Amino acid sequence: MSSRDLSPRRLATAAWALRLQFFVTGALFATWGVHVPTVKAHYGLGEQSLAIAMLASGVGALLALTQAGRVIARFGPRGVAAVTGVLCATGVSLLIVPNVYVGLVLLLMLFGATGSLFDVAINAEATEIEHRAGRPLMSGFHAMFSLGGMVGAGFGSLLPWLGWSAQTHLWVACGAGIAIILGASVAMLEMRAEPGDKQPLSLPRGVLALIGTLAALGLIAEGAMYDWSVLFMKQERASDASVSALGYASFSLAMALGRFGGDWVRARVAPVPLMVASGLLAAAGMSIALLVPPAGAGLLGFALVGLGLSNVVPVLFSAASKVPGVSPAHGIAAVSSVGYLGMMAGPPLIGMIAEHSSLTIGLSCVVFFALIMAMAAQRALGSTRSRVAGPAAAD
């Protein structure tokens, strides 16, 4: 894909529009995360049944990713973001409308499919803007996702004081999300397709497969925070609804702060040591949250996990977008497909372990996967540093 010639002002406008898209995506994911206990209670589910419903979201995402490159090539990131963003927000608003389990499964499948297409579309545009700006910007875009998650979770923690019902919160979040998505879509770039972009996604091989493996490991940990952090604080630490929501908020705040400084870090630290440090810090933070009983320790631990994971996805998506012979949308979709396999398998695995033991034991998987991510960094990125790392290679 390429875009038309742009003035600096037009590029800056498009960049801010894209930041808003990342922000609203994070807020929508946080809204789902805050209401996992609500959904569990509404449908009368155990951890295993809830995990299976979450699996539907991953299946929807994976199916959508097989066509992401083709769809984005045909309609452009701007059009895809507008349509899928609206559908994603609508799916969130309807989470507790059905009274039957199959309704939840279908809604989560819609949420996963539209959310993944929206994600690839805005990341494809992010790589184009980063390329045209000539400097690292990807971490800053993803920081807005984390900031949106923090705001969404923080707002959820205020519900008892606002006196709102869960459904009122979902309707408000949906309305605000749709307004931002449509407004920001108008200011996004118009990117035209090139002939090579029309091929459907194939299974990633070589460099993309290795990068995708790291993405899977990081997204398992990140997905666990989205889906289980609030429930962990409520069930395992006996926290009230407000404190439980702050578990997700602390994770998102730390991730946002790490990403706002991430472009500066990426310009000075090579991908391999950055990945190693990220995995070790995430493992340490999760260990604190699981092993130290006070609720405050859980909030601190989740914050360290967020800081540790903050630059994993920006580094990997930026690398995937620069693999020779592969368009940015296809590179990101290929890595995302492997990453979503991890995100798809991770939360249900944690839920099934929790069903037969405890959520604390289930979330210990995050420690294990974060350590593997640190150990696998050299193999996945070491041989590709000079080709895809950009300025971060000069350390």
Rank of each mutant, 00 (worst) to 15 (best):
F111Y: 10
P195T: 06
A143H: 01
S202H: 15
V186P: 01
I129T: 11
H131F: 11
G148S: 04
A89G: 01
L162E: 05
T90N: 02
V105C: 00
G175M: 11
V97D: 05
Q199M: 13
I178G: 07
V120K: 02
V86D: 02
M138K: 01
R205V: 14
V172D: 08
K198E: 15
G196Q: 14
V92H: 02
L87W: 05
V102E: 13
L201G: 11
V120P: 03
L201R: 11
V186L: 07
R135V: 08
G149A: 09
M138D: 01
L159Y: 08
S202Q: 15
R132D: 10
W164S: 14
E190I: 12
S139G: 04
L170I: 11
P200Y: 11
G206K: 09
V186F: 09
T114V: 09
G163E: 12
V120M: 07
F111S: 02
L158H: 08
F145P: 05
N99K: 12
G154M: 05
Y101S: 03
M188H: 01
V120T: 09
V172L: 13
A89V: 04
V97P: 03
V172F: 06
L182H: 06
P136W: 09
T168I: 14
T114G: 10
Y101H: 07
A126H: 00
S146G: 14
G156M: 07
S157L: 06
A173E: 06
V105F: 13
P200S: 13
A153Q: 05
A176R: 06
G112P: 09
W161K: 14
A184Q: 00
A176L: 15
A173S: 15
L106C: 13
G91M: 00
Q199C: 08
L117E: 05
I129G: 06
I180S: 02
I122G: 09
L94G: 00
A166L: 09
R132Y: 06
D197E: 15
F118D: 06
G175W: 08
P98A: 02
P98K: 03
P160N: 02
Q199Y: 10
V186H: 09
L210W: 12
G134H: 02
A124V: 10
E130D: 09
L95R: 01
G148T: 05
S93V: 04
I181K: 07
L104E: 08
S157Q: 06
G112I: 07
L137H: 04
M144L: 15
T127Y: 07
V105M: 08
G175K: 01
T90Y: 03
L107E: 04
I96H: 01
F145W: 14
L108N: 07
A143F: 04
P160F: 05
L106M: 14
T114H: 08
A133M: 12
A166V: 15
L87M: 10
E190Q: 11
A166Y: 10
Q167K: 12
S116T: 11
H131V: 11
A187V: 08
L147R: 09
V120S: 09
